[in-house]
Design a protein around this nucleic acid. Structure first.
Lengths: 193, 193
DNA sequence: ATGTGCATGTAACTGGTTACATGATTCG
DNA sequence: CGAATCATGTAACCAGTTACATGCACAT
């Protein structure tokens, strides 16, 4: 069982936990979200899938179409789900990038409702810390400070504000209606986001 | 001249173009901005510096303190400035991440005023494209879509909106006053939430 | 005919991290 | 006395990219 380090393997696992997919499917799914979470090349997807296979965290079903190349549909196993859950369980690194945060967020169905809220709250406090840190740096500027740095700092503050605002809004929404979409059951009464 | 690929070397070069620094200084400078542009470990900074040296894009001055380890202050050379200018000259990749965008922005003093404005405008249109793309994906959701994905999408839209708002504000400011040095003065925007 | 989409894979490379080694000084 | 800060460096490792190889179907 070799996949100890991080993330991207888990993202694949997370996608597969939502529905079985082929490597090709994964690529396309991620392409839409490139800007948010980044996409990956086939050169990393296929090997990752093979590794997950040998670790028995996923299984394959090969589907032969006539006149089309066969498709390998990967599905997550119980062991895979377990690994995912464990990963979700451990706390997020402080000062994780937006990307890293969103990657994990995308696996929300593997969080408990309480876990999800905790995760968002965690993020909120981290962003606030970053925000004050940036404000600090901004204050330390003198007139000689490079324009680009000032702009970057200002940009950072703006994004941080937007993040906090979104998190506040969303947390409120999630606690108002404690069962956001009955994630694990089959029951949806919830108006869309 | 071997540093063709990208970024991080250029960031170092950019920092050195603002003022001479040691590897240690660079690390610390970047640490403050970790959240914005990411920081780098010594294991990549020192080798990078050595590489820049052998390419004659920087020079060193060793300063010996008594009783303190000697400090190696790196300064950018004319050749280094040239490389930077060339890098700045070429257009930004579409759909660059926030980080990549900010990295370049931090080197604004190496842009011309017009170049800077063009760069921000480029970013604005790119973010708008991403925004519409995300809206598209959002529409394509059905009720079975994973909660995490919806949240991530929503988050992305919020950030994109914030980016565009900031860019609009800033572009207006920059074109109002063609000599930008006063940026930080009247402008404590931070509309906290 | 040429290119694009479907579909899978491998090999070489590379940018960066982690961990290690060294060593003096100052703070608690 | 141990920990942190200053300060530089190397070597092993690793995740992910690029480029390559293959091959059929469908549209222009």
């Amino acid at each position: 069982v070799s996949s100890r380090t991080v993330s991207f393997r888990h993202v694949i696992l997370g996608l597969l936990s939502q529905q079985p997919m082929s490597g090709y499917d994964i690529k396309h799914f991620l392409k839409n979200l490139d800007w948010l979470v980044g996409s990956f090349s086939f050169g990393s997807i296929y090997p990752a899938l093979h590794a997950l296979l040998t670790d028995s965290l996923v299984t394959v079903d090969v589907i032969y179409h006539q006149d089309k190349p066969p498709k390998k549909i990967y599905s997550i196993t119980e062991a895979g789900k377990q690994v995912l859950r464990e990963w979700i369980g451990q706390p997020a690194v402080p000062s994780a990038s937006l990307k890293a945060f969103l990657m994990r967020l995308m696996l929300a169905s593997n969080f408990s409702h309480a876990g999800l809220i905790a995760y968002l709250e965690q993020r909120r406090s981290q962003v606030k810390v970053q925000h004050t840190a940036l404000e600090q740096v901004t204050e330390d500027q003198d007139e000689t400070t490079d324009l680009g740095q000032r702009l970057a700092l200002d940009y950072g503050l703006a994004v941080a504000n937007a993040e906090v605002a979104w998190l506040d809004r969303t947390l409120e929404r999630l606690s108002e209606q404690p069962l956001p979409m009955e994630v694990t059951q089959g029951n949806d009464t919830t108006p869309t986001v």
